[in-house]
Design a protein around this nucleic acid. Structure first.
Lengths: 212, 212
DNA sequence: GTCATCATGTAAGCCGTTACATGATTGC
DNA sequence: GCAATCATGTAACGGCTTACATGATGAC
């Protein structure tokens, strides 16, 4: 899910980790946005896999003047500070604000391919489907229809399962469980209607290959 | 979440692990029901903590005739088999069907206390709130109101957050993201209405301490 | 005789979280 | 000079899943 979200966002524009998370919050809300603790390692893994590449690395050229190690801890730290300040001074495209050097990532061709593959894959998770919808413009129109219809089938199946269970049980549920169940069913039905709307619009815009 | 669900179900009646999971599926649906891989260890932990106790253990009395170990693997296995068959033959309350001996658990007083504590705790997770509602009849009426109102505040906050984000962004979202956002907002609003209904009913049945 | 269902458990692993370590810059 | 925000990372841990091991019983 994280990979999907990161690749999806980077498909729009190059970004650094911190920025990525802010976007995640804006798009999915604070509680669904992954924490830095998983975001940064994920970026590193994606980079290693060649799906993403650092565009503006804090390159820190071979160390301007290597600063012979004095052996003292304070000296080492001072050297590090100096190196960083230097890097900042020379980094042309940096905006004036911000603390540490950013590491800006961009998506690669392999990354784009991966993104499409992840969008095309069955969701598994409810939240994953939401992310897929958020980025589904990167999908071919016909694959988008498949995505929506797969989801539709899944929700229909859940409703059927629910109906079966309701039938089996003689509706011996207390007030709260009944309220919960009814509400869930309504939510499921709303989801289904929403999908139908999406599908209708999708089919209206792509009347593909119907002239024999 | 698992602890809450298990304690909630055992508060209704004594059950064994396998049965517990079937109930979980019926109540929350197959995809939200925890797997055996987490259910059995959870039961063991709850038992150790004294929140649950084995009611019908496969007691396997000190081994009817200890069967002096022959040293051969086949012999050991045969002995085990015999012991099990014996246990089955003597277990009075077992229903005729089923394979292995069941381990039926019941909730203890400490377990009931824990259940109420877990119901009273802030949800954290959306799914946890659902489980809390399913078992909230074990809560005192006034605490139930607190549970619902806390949730109400949480959802209201999410809607506000969303409105803020919508305002900040000049609504530059593609079709799919806008559809997703609108649908989420509608779902949130429906949840809020549902909670209001629950709260209204709750207050109607308990007009507590209003005569000064 | 073999398949589905009942029944209990263990082990490995995934995916995420919180908490910590580190530090620059801006605004009050 | 202090807090907030920007910025990147690591380490420990949690909770759940899958896959595996084991086996009885009934139905077909």
């Amino acid at each position: 899910m994280l990979h999907l979200a990161v690749l999806g966002l980077l498909a729009d524009a190059d970004r650094h980790g911190y920025e990525l998370r802010k976007q995640l919050i804006e798009l999915f809300g604070a509680r669904r946005a992954m924490s830095f603790g998983s975001l940064y390692p994920a970026l590193a893994r994606l980079e290693q896999a060649g799906l993403v590449k650092a565009v503006t690395a804090s390159v820190a050229r071979p160390a301007p003047a290597p600063v012979p190690s004095s052996g003292s801890l304070a000296g080492e730290l001072a050297a590090l500070r100096a190196r960083r300040t230097a890097a900042k001074a020379t980094a042309g495209e940096r905006s004036s604000r911000g603390g540490r050097e950013r590491k800006v990532y961009g998506i690669t061709d392999a990354g784009r391919a991966r993104l499409v593959a992840l969008l095309d894959e069955p969701a598994g998770d409810d939240r994953t489907f939401g992310v897929q919808v958020a980025f589904c413009r990167h999908l071919e129109p016909d694959r988008r229809v498949v995505l929506f219809e797969r989801r539709r089938a899944e929700l229909t199946e859940r409703l059927a399962e629910r109906a079966r269970a309701d039938h089996a049980r003689g509706s011996r549920l207390d007030h709260y469980r009944r309220a919960l169940r009814d509400h869930d069913t309504r939510a499921l039905t709303n989801d289904l209607h929403w999908l139908d709307e999406l599908l209708e619009l999708e089919r209206a815009t792509i009347p593909q290959e119907d002239t024999p």
